[in-house]
């Protein structure tokens, strides 16, 4: 039951993007379409899973004063692994996300979970926490990307909603639309959080 609570808190109660407001740079930057949001979310989930696992394994042998540099090296290694693997086996996804992959290193969500959760909990809980937080992040990015794609291009995951109409409200594909969409989704998630609490 405790593990289930750790897993589900990332979706609404502690949603990294809409409630904790962590990792806003990728959340605003890559979410021009639902597919990009999903790809970025899953890449971050993988990094989070790797870094949380390793950090919780070695948390006792890392002296306190050098824990942050050690965590950054671990996170950066996983990000590079994701980048190389994606370029090798998913070149199409890499083309649209490639620029943003190195930014996962400085995504405060990954660092935050390593510091606030994995360095204080056992491996099992850390893995569950990484999965919950990562999927919550993926959910947020896909929702924001989907909203912007529906309004900005009248399509979802590349499928046209209205045949023949491709030019939507352009502002939603551009940067201002990210902030507007984010604002309304924050309202929605705070409403949901109050309701479920």
């Amino acid at each position: 039951m405790k593990q289930w609570k750790i897993f589900t808190k990332g979706f609404i109660k502690d949603n990294p993007v809409f409630i904790l407001l962590l990792g806003l740079c990728p959340a605003l930057g890559v979410t021009t379409s639902a597919f990009n949001g999903l790809g970025m979310g899953l890449a971050t989930t993988f990094v989070l899973l790797g870094s949380n696992t390793v950090v919780s394994i070695i948390k006792n042998v890392i002296p306190n004063k050098v824990r942050i540099p050690s965590f950054i090296v671990i996170i950066a290694s996983f990000v590079t692994i994701v980048q190389l693997t994606m370029e090798a086996f998913l070149p199409d996804l890499f083309e649209s996300l490639g620029l943003f992959i190195p930014l996962i290193v400085v995504n405060c969500l990954v660092m935050g979970r390593a510091e606030a959760f994995a360095s204080k909990n056992n491996i099992g809980s850390s893995i569950v926490d990484a999965l919950g937080m990562g999927l919550g992040f993926t959910l947020a990015l896909t929702m924001l990307g989907g909203l912007r794609e529906i309004l900005g291009a009248y399509s979802i995951f590349g499928i046209q909603l209205i045949p023949g109409v491709t030019d939507g409200m352009l502002v939603f594909v551009l940067a201002p639309g990210a902030f507007i969409g984010m604002g309304y989704l924050i309202i929605l998630f705070n409403y949901l959080k109050k309701k479920t609490a």
Binding site: N60, V61, I62, P63, N64, K65, V66, P69, S70, V73, I74, A76, S77
Partner: peptide
């Protein structure tokens, strides 16, 4: 939790091992 002391030798050794493994 038997956390390691932050002595100089411990810190150098840890960072070296972490970066070498990475």
């Amino acid at each position: 939790m038997a956390k390691k002391e932050s002595t100089f030798i411990n810190m150098v050794l840890t960072l070296f091992l972490v970066t070498a493994a990475a």
